[in-house]
Simulated assay, not measured.
Amino acid sequence: MNDIITFEDFTKIDLRVGTIVEVNDFPEAKNPAYQLTIDFGQLGIKKSSAQITTLYKKEDLLNRQIVAIVNFPKKQIAKFMSECLVLGAVNGKDVVLLNPEIKVANGSTVS
């Protein structure tokens, strides 16, 4: 387990549901990854790099809802600017995406 945080620390994290609307290969990434374009409803469109190529094909990701942290600072990855962090459970070397069980509105908060 990592360091213990306070509830106030947790409330600073903005977790939202979004729908993947575009998926592209990311050959410049150090580790195999996709470039994702995600619709977060009223928050708009954000991009993210995700190392999820071992379990997911590009066509399987389109229109899939995911959970992401949307209030991290932007991060440059090769020539790509990542604007949010898509969440997943690490299973060995694979990452399994976290997603709502039932479709919800894009931009819905996660608590």
Results as ranks from 00 to 15, higher is better:
98 L>G: 09
31 N>W: 04
3 D>V: 05
23 V>L: 09
61 L>E: 08
48 S>M: 03
29 A>R: 01
27 P>C: 07
9 D>W: 06
17 V>F: 09
100 P>G: 15
105 A>E: 15
55 L>Q: 04
96 V>E: 10
74 K>D: 15
32 P>T: 03
47 K>Y: 14
13 I>M: 04
86 V>M: 05
19 T>D: 00
100 P>E: 15
48 S>I: 08
12 K>W: 03
63 N>Y: 08
94 D>Y: 01
74 K>Q: 14
22 E>D: 12
35 Q>R: 07
101 E>F: 11
84 C>K: 11
26 F>H: 01
87 L>I: 12
69 I>Q: 11
85 L>I: 14
98 L>K: 04
95 V>F: 07
53 T>Q: 09
15 L>M: 06
45 I>L: 07
83 E>P: 06
110 V>G: 02
100 P>D: 15
54 T>Q: 12
49 S>K: 01
110 V>L: 09
34 Y>P: 02
101 E>H: 14
32 P>I: 02
15 L>H: 05
76 Q>P: 00
23 V>F: 09
61 L>Q: 08
110 V>P: 02
92 G>N: 15
23 V>N: 02
37 T>Y: 07
23 V>T: 07
102 I>L: 15
71 N>G: 12
20 I>W: 01
24 N>H: 11
85 L>E: 09
5 I>H: 09
65 Q>K: 06
36 L>D: 04
84 C>S: 11
78 A>F: 00
54 T>S: 09
99 N>V: 13
67 V>A: 13
48 S>K: 03
7 F>A: 09
1 M>G: 11
44 G>S: 10
95 V>Y: 02
56 Y>E: 05
30 K>A: 00
56 Y>A: 02
60 D>N: 05
23 V>K: 05
97 L>E: 06
6 T>D: 03
